[in-house]
């Protein structure tokens, strides 16, 4: 007998995509629970009963029904409470992460996507290797903390960009910073000795006709062109512009490219992914990266692609259980 859909969403209070999907589920009357990870452990209580499937997980006094689908969207940490030692707070946060993840990873459910798969897929060096093995074109790349190699590749590549291997976020001087893909210039070479403190991804700068964002939801594929070359702030990394009117339009990917991207998603065991490509002036698509928990709301706003509906539909599907 087909089970009635019950959705567990592991996320954060600060995610508008989660808000929109939750609204869809609520409108459809789908039972769901949104677990905002930063609320634990300092603001809410969590209880896991490994041998009691009827009361397997309890948030404060609310027992959760066993989910048919789990959306692993975000894992965020709370700030340190006043008067708590920082090391002690880190211990509490790590134990909480182990409790939340340890409680859910063994659940037999439809996953978008399983934490172990998301963890692996967020390593960009791994993505690049898999993509190349599938015949996707990737930029000439080196990942290193060796200044001599970076200098040599700078000459060989002609133009070069730098990007992080995993996290585009850093707390620096006590403030949150974003690390975008950035172009290396000749004037930067004198500073390269400090590259040894952290490996990074160094790639040839690929000339762009436009950027492409491909969003996969299960077997569904939504592709959009981002006309990044019309905005100086968006030319290297379109996320760098704050212009919400940056031109976009829906596109149809070539069939062989879409098939290769589907294979990549299956190899990574991802049921959701936001893939960044470049279309070159000569008409060639180049793979940059896949974001296992990428954003999409602005694409629905601009192009009415229906990605939010697709995510909600996927989460409420029970026929494959």
């Amino acid at each position: 007998m087909m089970r009635k859909a019950v959705v567990l969403i592991v996320s954060t209070k600060v995610d508008a995509a989660t808000d929109d999907v939750v609204q869809r589920l609520a409108r459809q009357g789908i039972p769901h629970h949104r677990l905002n990870t930063e609320e634990y452990p300092f603001h809410r209580r969590i209880t896991y009963n490994p041998s009691d499937s009827a009361a397997w997980l309890q948030c404060d006094d609310e027992p959760l029904m066993e989910p048919t689908s789990i959306w692993y969207r975000r894992m965020r940490i709370p700030s340190t409470p006043e008067r708590m030692d920082e090391g002690v707070a880190t211990f509490c946060r790590n134990e909480t992460r182990a409790t939340i993840l340890g409680s859910i990873i063994g659940q037999e459910a439809r996953w978008m996507s399983h934490p172990a798969d998301v963890w692996a897929a967020e390593f960009k060096p791994y993505q690049l290797r898999l993509a190349a093995s599938l015949g996707l074109r990737i930029p000439p790349t080196v990942i290193t903390n060796d200044p001599a190699i970076i200098r040599a590749r700078f000459r060989a590549f002609g133009s070069m960009v730098i990007k992080p291997t995993r996290s585009g976020h850093v707390v620096k001087d006590g403030a949150d910073h974003a690390i975008y893909t950035s172009q290396l210039l000749e004037s930067h070479l004198d500073e390269l000795d400090s590259a040894r403190w952290s490996p990074s991804i160094y790639q040839a700068l690929i000339p762009k006709r436009y950027d492409v964002r491909v969003t996969f939801v299960g077997e569904r594929c939504f592709a959009a062109a981002i006309d990044s070359q019309t905005d100086p702030a968006a030319r290297i990394d379109w996320r760098q512009t704050d212009n919400p009117e940056l031109p976009h339009h829906p596109i149809q990917l070539p069939g062989d490219l879409e098939a290769a991207l589907h294979r990549l998603m299956r190899l990574l065991s991802l049921t959701f992914g936001a893939i960044d490509l470049v279309l070159t002036p000569s008409g060639e698509y180049v793979f940059l990266e896949v974001n296992p928990s990428g954003q999409w709301l602005w694409l629905d706003d601009m192009l009415h692609l229906g990605i939010t509906d697709a995510v909600a539909d996927w989460l409420t599907e029970t026929s494959t259980l």
């Binding site: 954060t12 209070k13 600060v14 995610d15 508008a16 930063e38 965020r76 940490i77 709370p78 700030s79 903390n145 730098i162 992080p164 976020h169 850093v170 707390v171 620096k172 403030a175 949150d176 910073h177 974003a178 690390i179 975008y180 950035s182 930067h188 500073e191 390269l192 400090s194 590259a195 040894r196 403190w197 952290s198 990074s200 760098q240």
Partner: peptide
């Protein structure tokens, strides 16, 4: 002792959705 890549780090504006949620 700051790695080269962080010379490209840009401060997030208040309310940008990254980092510790409770600081947003």
């Amino acid at each position: 002792m700051t790695p080269f890549i962080l010379r490209f780090a840009e401060p997030l504006a208040a309310g940008d959705p990254q980092g510790s949620c409770e600081n947003s």
